[in-house]
Design a protein around this nucleic acid. Structure first.
Length: 422
RNA sequence: GGAGAGAUGGCCGAGUAGGUCGAAGGCGCUCGCCUGCUAAGCGAGUAUACUGGGAAACCGGUAUCGAGGGUUCGAAUCCCUCUCUCUCCGCCA
């Protein structure tokens, strides 16, 4: 959520910057609601001040019959206050809802562009594997090795659900442990294991609600949602809190499954593990001082890249343009891994700085020192990495002519020493 | 699922026959004094949001005692609903 005062004072700037996202915003509506709110607020508060003053006078009068005229008068004032408060509440709710649906202002550093096509490749790492055979897509490799069972996944639940078998399941589990060990051991993140379903407030705090409810799985019996990413529970850990400035940055990592409806992507990536309703991810989340958030974003991105470097999987980093960054993000770098079976790079991590957008929604603040006023932290997060897509990358990049798949060296300790599958 | 207890400021904890209570007291913390150092002691200060005025320092108003609603001139205190925590019983990985 954007700061009301900031919008009020920088209307044109906010408008032009938001336009670069391709999403218009009706700032005239904001202006109207905002001034309406302030006007009503002043009126009702003046009346409340009067009521408080007179009520206090009444309290000092021992013989209440002497106060009867004032009591009658205040009874009427209270009625008026009640009416105005209701009107005010209506305006505030409208304004609040409006603000909750306005996306974050992109960072000035974010390249301006209309779509994915305008994203900027900023670096490329690793050598694409040379193969003297036609590389297969991972779903063929996985089925041939009998480690991925798409048919039974669909039987158990439906489309976009997959059953992992044997060394396939083991590979997924190995990757989770490998990533968590790396981030906790080498990169100094604190491991968290949060709930996999959260309430409406948490979903609103990180920006999934109210705008993107159709992307979420909702539990009918209670008003809970399955998390679409660990970002939601982990960022909300500190919702409504005031942190100590000396504790920043707080760096958390968490493994969770993620559940997404993938509404609107019918017919896209229907084969294989790329787009699932349920997938595993290891997430990195940071709460940082506003002055350092972009330096922390660079570090977080590097921490995510490190996973691919250790696994020796070729990748590139892309600077998302204003037309392609997410609703809550001010700046985002995607890491795309090379997939020989599909002859393209595919997103495997998305690392974003939300600045104070989520912090304001979720009220996550810090004090520079004991005396200081609370300020909003900046929140960041990134996948470190999407586990299913890492399996995809390993299967496709490490496939051999004979159909077997070599296990990356770094992962072997997590695979009981196995060197290959098949 | 059944029965009961509770939710107050950074923490502990008063306050329920409604009124001067944003809220005693203690702890913690900050600043100053004192002390050879430390400890102790003394004094002052110590919530947040919105809003009006002001360049600012700051001054004023309103709201907030789990959340929401009600009664009342006036509610931390009374009534209703909900949420959460704790204890006991049942069930259960």
């Amino acid at each position: 959520m954007l700061d009301v005062k900031y919008i009020r004072e920088h209307l044109e700037l906010v408008e032009t910057r938001l336009k670069t996202r391709g999403t218009g915003i009706d700032l005239e509506r904001f202006r109207q609601l905002d001034s309406q709110r302030r006007e009503l607020l002043q009126q009702t508060e003046t009346l409340k001040a009067l009521r408080n003053k007179v009520s206090e006078e009444i309290s000092r009068i021992k013989d209440k019959s002497q106060a009867q005229d004032r009591i009658t008068e205040m009874r009427e004032v209270s009625q008026r206050i009640k009416g105005m408060d209701e009107e005010l509440k209506g305006v505030e709710e409208t304004l609040e809802h409006f603000l909750l649906t306005v996306p974050n202002v992109p960072s000035p550093a974010t390249p301006v562009g209309a779509s994915e096509a305008d994203n900027v490749e900023i670096r490329v790492w690793g050598e694409k594997p040379r193969m003297d055979f036609t590389p297969k897509p991972h779903w063929e490799i996985g089925e041939a090795l009998d480690i991925l069972d798409f048919e039974r996944g669909a039987k158990l639940t439906g489309a976009r659900f997959t059953l992992y078998k044997g060394l396939g399941a083991r590979l997924e589990r190995a990757l989770i442990n490998f990533m968590l060990d790396l981030h906790t051991g080498r990169h100094n993140y604190l491991e968290m294991l949060p709930p996999f379903m959260v309430n409406r407030e948490s979903m609103t705090g990180t920006g999934q609600l109210p705008k993107f409810e159709e992307d979420l799985f909702h539990l009918g019996e209670v008003d809970y949602f399955l998390i679409p990413t660990a970002e939601v529970p982990v960022t909300n850990i500190h919702r409504g809190e005031i942190l100590k400035g000396s504790d920043l940055p707080l760096c958390y990592t968490a493994y969770t499954p993620c559940f997404r409806k993938e509404a609107g992507s019918y017919g896209k990536d229907t084969r294989g593990l790329i787009r699932q309703h349920q997938f595993n991810k290891v997430e990195l989340v940071k709460f940082v001082h506003p002055d350092h958030s972009y330096a922390e974003l660079d570090k977080l991105l590097d921490n995510a890249e490190e996973v691919l470097r250790l696994l020796k999987l070729p990748y590139r980093v892309v600077d998302l343009c204003t037309g392609d960054i997410g609703f809550s993000a001010a700046r985002t770098f995607d890491i795309e891994v090379w997939l020989p079976g599909q002859d393209c790079y595919r997103e495997i991590s998305s690392c974003s700085n939300f600045e104070d957008f989520q912090a304001r929604r979720a009220s996550i603040r810090f004090r520079e020192d004991e005396k200081a006023k609370p300020e909003f932290v900046h929140t960041l997060n990134g996948s470190g990495l999407a586990v299913g897509r890492t399996v995809v990358a390993i299967l496709e990049n490490y496939q051999q002519a004979d159909g077997s798949v070599v296990i990356p060296e770094a992962l072997r300790p997590y695979m009981g020493g196995a060197e290959k599958i098949g």
